[in-house]
Nucleic acid binder design. Sequence first.
DNA 1: ATAGGGTTAG
Length: 642
Amino acid sequence: MKSLFKRPPRNRLAATRRSSRPVHTQPPPHPSLAIFSRLCVEGPFPAALALLPDLAAAGLRADPVSLTRLVKLCVRHGTAGDGRLIHRHVEAHGQLSHYSGGAGGGIFVSNSLVSMYAKFGLLDDALRLFDRMPERNVVTWTTVVAALANADGRKEEALRFLVAMWRDGVAPNAYTFSSVLGACGTPGVLAALHASTVKVGLDSDVFVRSSLIDAYMKLGDLDGGRRVFDEMVTRDLVVWNSIIAGFAQSGDGVGAIELFMRMKDAGFSANQGTLTSVLRACTGMVMLEAGRQVHAHVLKYERDLILHNALLDMYCKCGSLEDAEALFHRMPQRDVISWSTMISGLAQNGKSAEALRVFDLMKSEGVAPNRITMVGVLFACSHAGLVEDGWYYFRSMKKLFGIQPEREHHNCMVDLLGRAGKLDEAVEFIRDMNLEPDAVIWRTLLGACRMHKSGNLAAYAAREILKLEPDDQGARVLLSNTYADLRQWTDAEKSWKAMRDRGMKKEPGRSWIELEKHVHVFIAGDLSHPCSDTIVQELNRLIGRISALGYVPQTEFVLQDLAIEQKEDLLKYHSEKMAIAFGTMHAVGGKPIRIMKNLRICGDCHAFAKLVSKSEGRMIIIRDPVRFHHFQDGACSCGDYW
DNA sequence: ATAGGGTTAG
């Protein structure tokens, strides 16, 4: 150590040759600085922090290594105030340039301060310091780019900073690319950035790859993500997690689970992130049994809230409220998402009163609701016909919780009023709201009109939808049928022609059912399932049994112009009926039959399921895109109100 | 001194 402070013997060749680095002359540090440095290494750290203002007042500069170490400690302990204190020392007497210049490791200090501000979410402070720095290197730029890419609503800025750094002559590295790829808002930008990574030879970096996969998937380009994944030779766990998450999030639960199996074959074991995505895949496919298996692995991670929330949601969306509630009460911590999940889960499963009780409990525990919580609360009101409560929550959410009602909340209100048969009020609500109504709102109104058989208003809503989305086939079909019902044949003919001209095809109804951890898909009118013959036999048997209970096919649910026999045939092979028949054929023990479908259940299938639950003495649970139907002993949890 | 993957609604 001592030699550091001695001038090197200039005239002795051996000595100069031995040291490859130039040796600087340095005076011994001021005693206060020496104490400060020691405190930064050995602690107590508050004492080191307390010393900073005195050092600055005495015009003394703390050494960069110690300061950087202190900044890191502030980040670790979450003490942003202390971070600011260090920043003040750095800026005292105009010394910022010393702590952000290239030589002597000074820039490490400023970079760590920028990073500190970013980690505390104090982005504007980070940017202010960034602007004041006389020099910036790739780390400085990357820190800011990453912070902007991760903050919501500032993705374009992240891209602008990337361009600016490029122009400033600082080349992005793998850190920069892996951060900025998440900020791509369009396929074009992503393609350009992907090309850049190739050009600078960084596209084989695993961090860059996993970000690429994630970016493609988030933009809905599953094939793009898959291509990057397939091209990889060495994958790590995060890469696997990225692709699995991408599939799970885009609704391909089967694909996600297949990849998960491959991941295990490749010798990786799941971590919390993997399990969360696998649970989401199970949730999407209503794979309760598979989800339960995952639950066994979740037990190791008792403190992981995200994972537990995913598990909770899986039980809710698989219609198993007993499991959901048991888990909810056992969870060591609960955050807004846990509460929101439970509230929506109860509401969707027809337990609105309980959902509102849980909401009260949430408030009494001091957890602040967010806008998604309020969607669940309003949903609960609307599906229980609690018009007054709904109005109350809608009107007071701003004042009570500081949440401004947005589009989704207005939509809930239209649903609330419409469902309750207050169609005029719903229309009035749409007219008076401060937002321009979109197709979603009109579709909600349309649903209410159908429920309450209000033909004229339905046609009005359908026309509004078609103004905004001319290809909405549901609205088009409904409009044609309304005209037909009203015997307005010219209009009906015009509407049918419009459909033919657009070559519109109805999205086929699909139902999924899990059997022994495999998912079987049924498509309306498609008899290509390997067991189709026996399924048709079983369907006939069920129809025979429920006919005795009064079942008559309700052909008005076929929105096509066909002969009655053809309509009956179409009805008979609705996907959920086939799935129910498949379920009753393979029924074991007293387990409910669980089915998920992509469209909302039609009135005929609803009646069918109710009667089958009675004739077969078995519970049937059907999840449609919006809510659940628990059929038991001839009745449904939705109270025939959906 | 800088980086990638996971949860609620519609």
